[in-house]
Design a protein around this nucleic acid. Structure first.
Length: 666
DNA sequence: CGCGTCTGTCATGTT
DNA sequence: CAAACATGACAGACG
């Protein structure tokens, strides 16, 4: 029997982590200046690197290094390439991650263009730059996407004029803002990941509508007074414009979260990477169930549909990592968006599954929406019917896979699932992302956390109520198990909330309750038969959450106002000092002029030998501002000669004499 | 232990 | 009139 098996069989082992590991090690070598064979000079600063890496990333370096005349180990970059522009690019070359902020994005773009950096599409910048810099006038409200077609239509008719947020799905390269614990407003783009998450904005309609436009214009009489007093909305609005942009990015791109508060750790383990990146899959760490499911899923998925490109071959190291990760609940970023978190994504299922599902859903639900592509990223919600059909066909198999996975993800509390699978007629049988939300809701109930995601932490610090509202709305309710970085108050509160939700056997997520708009909320209450206790809980939690957010917004506005007023004070102080200087300067000039006039008068008087009457006339022309003091002795002398009849009051007061207004004589 | 800060919550007024 | 929102006040936790 053994002879049946040909000995010549060839087996191929393909490591999915090798390439990224190599890059990672190269980066380590670079950091230690090991085997570096080139020095790049930018604005006087030198960077050590490997020629091969640079050449493989950049046309410019390739040309320089391969050029027979340029064998030197030092490459001086052209002046157009700035330090701020090059450094992130170098980082990108070694990590596939581009750290950029509003401040340096232009320089990076310019440098990347000059250096011919590969894998950095201009289109990405083209897409982001407007978001960064043109959203100042208020970011477009993001249409919330729900499962129900009727709801979509209704909302669309309501928000017809609003620009769609356009969920962005990425094909080959994913733009993935990644957490960075630094307070800088940086967003990391991770191009190397092939996951596409479909992000939306569940509550972004409201939050953007209320706050996303321009924070200073927020309602509130007292705040308006502040704003009117300050008339310095720029500061806040600029902040918000940026935040809006980032928000849109966040809503549009696949974001991943990590639970670790450590920056380095986070950066390493940020993405849910389908390529088997060892630094990935953090999203699933939180649930032991998922870890268990992981093992089975990988086989199921793979065997079911190769087309779906499910790459869940994780290394042992990864598995160990995942298993040894903090037991704290993992924030699943997806759940923060309107588009449901898809556990498939966190399992490493190729995004096309979700993407196609999401596209289909949106295409069906949102016939008015737009379709566009950015750097290979599909902005979902196609309005093209044929795309809908194509998407349907394309995703048929994938849907089956998704369904299968979804089944795998049904946790013990079927009530959650059933609710959402049955909810919102017309969608329950579709393998759309919304249905998967059933899973997400469970997750969110168990695993959402505010502080778990440094990405959001960062944005929380950005003083944008939009983030604040979104982030905290989501986070504030359900996370109860995260006690590390949160205060006991919050933790306890949220824990008790989650606990209470379980106690009252709430058939839906608390997040859900909080994020629904009024109509949806009422509709939900109508659809669900809730006990009195549940109703009370639902209303209570909704009220408290909204109030909490309102309080946060209020405080932020206050701080903004204080800051603006402080700026105003400083400005006025500077203005005052300038005016004081100007006054003293003018006063000085006035004195000089007076002296000149006095000298002239004296000369005129002495040379012309004036009659006392003429002297009187001349004296009457003087003003208190510039008294002709030189005339006084002469007038006095004349008056003493001609008697006091001419000017009876002269002796009384020189000032009176010299002041035409008080001079009563003719 | 006092103090300042942060944050959630409640009460109340406004929209 | 109800809901959403803003805001002052208070309390508890924390550094």
């Amino acid at each position: 029997m053994a002879g049946l098996a040909p000995r010549s069989s060839v087996f191929t082992f393909e490591s999915t982590v090798h390439s990224s590991q190599v890059l990672h090690r190269l980066n380590e070598q670079r950091c230690r200046d090991m085997l570096c064979d080139v020095t790049v000079l930018v604005e006087g600063q030198s960077f050590r690197a490997h020629r091969s890496v640079l050449a493989s990333c950049s046309e410019y370096f390739l040309q320089k290094i391969s050029s027979p005349t340029q064998h030197g180990a030092v490459i001086t970059l052209p002046e157009e390439v700035t330090l701020a522009g090059f450094e992130p690019l170098l980082q990108f070359a070694y990590t596939s991650k581009l750290n950029f902020g509003k401040d340096n994005v232009l320089e990076i773009r310019s440098s990347a263009s000059i250096l011919g950096f590969r894998d950095l599409d201009e289109a990405c910048f083209d897409f982001l730059l407007p978001k960064f810099f043109l959203s100042r006038n208020g970011s477009a409200p993001i249409v919330r996407k729900t499962c129900c077609r009727k709801e979509c239509k209704r909302r669309l008719s309501k928000e017809n004029s609003a620009t769609d947020s356009d969920d962005v799905l990425l094909d080959d390269k994913e733009v993935k803002p990644v957490a960075d614990s630094s307070p800088k407003r940086d967003v990391t783009w991770d191009y190397n990941k092939s996951v596409s998450n479909k992000m939306g904005s569940q509550n972004s309609t409201r939050s953007l509508g209320a706050e996303g436009k321009n924070e200073p214009v927020i309602q509130g009489p007292k705040y308006r007074k502040f704003q009117l007093a300050c008339e310095k909305g720029m500061f806040a609005s600029e902040k918000c414009s940026f935040n809006s942009a980032v928000s849109e990015i966040r809503n549009g791109f696949a974001l991943s979260c990590l639970s670790c508060p450590n920056k380095v750790h986070c950066e390493k383990q940020t993405t849910v990477d389908l390529t088997g990146n060892p630094n990935s899959n953090k999203c699933i760490e939180s649930k032991a169930e998922v870890q268990e499911v992981w093992k089975t899923e990988k086989h199921n998925v793979k065997s079911e549909n190769c087309e779906s490109k499910v790459v869940v071959d994780i290394s042992k190291e990864e598995k160990t990592k995942i298993k040894t990760l903090s037991p704290k609940p993992s924030p699943i970023l997806c759940e923060r968006s309107s588009l449901p978190f898809c556990p498939l994504m966190c399992l490493g299922v190729d995004a096309t599954i979700t993407q196609s599902m999401g596209n289909e859903k949106c295409a069906v639900n949102n016939t008015e929406s737009k379709t566009s592509r950015v750097s290979g990223a599909i902005i979902s919600c196609s309005s093209q019917q044929n795309e809908i059909e194509n998407s349907r066909e394309r995703s048929t198999v994938k849907k089956e896979t998704a369904d299968h996975l979804r089944e795998q993800f049904r946790f013990s509390k079927d009530a959650y699932q059933q609710n959402f699978l049955d909810c919102e007629a017309g969608c329950s049988t579709d393998a759309c992302g919304e249905c998967v939300q059933g899973s997400s809701l469970q997750w969110s109930n168990l695993a959402s956390t505010k502080t778990g995601c440094p990405f959001y932490q960062d944005f929380d610090q950005m003083n944008c109520p939009m983030f604040e509202s979104e982030g905290t709305t989501q986070s504030s309710v359900n996370s109860g198990e995260d006690g590390d970085s949160e205060t006991e108050t919050e933790g306890d509160s949220e824990f008790s909330t989650a606990e209470r939700a379980l106690q009252v056997q709430l058939p839906f997520s608390v997040d859900w309750i909080v994020n629904l708009n009024r109509n949806d909320f009422q509709q939900l209450l109508k659809q669900q038969v809730l006990t009195q206790e549940q109703l009370e809980f639902v209303h209570d939690i909704r009220r408290r959450s909204k109030n909490r957010l309102a309080a946060q917004r209020c405080r932020k506005r206050k701080l903004d106002c204080i800051y603006n007023l402080q700026c105003e004070i400083n400005k006025l102080k500077t203005e005052r000092e300038k005016l004081i200087l100007e006054r003293s300067r003018l006063s000085q000039r006035k004195m000089e002029t007076c002296h000149t006039v006095n000298a002239l008068c004296r000369r005129v008087c002495s040379e012309a030998n004036l009659h006392p009457d003429q002297l009187q006339v001349l004296a009457s022309c003087t003003s208190s501002d510039c008294p002709l003091s030189s005339l006084v002795p002469q007038i006095d002398a004349l008056l003493s000669q001609h008697g006091s009849s001419l000017h009876p009051k002269t002796s009384a007061s020189q000032e009176d004499t010299l002041n035409p207004h008080t001079d009563t004589s003719t």
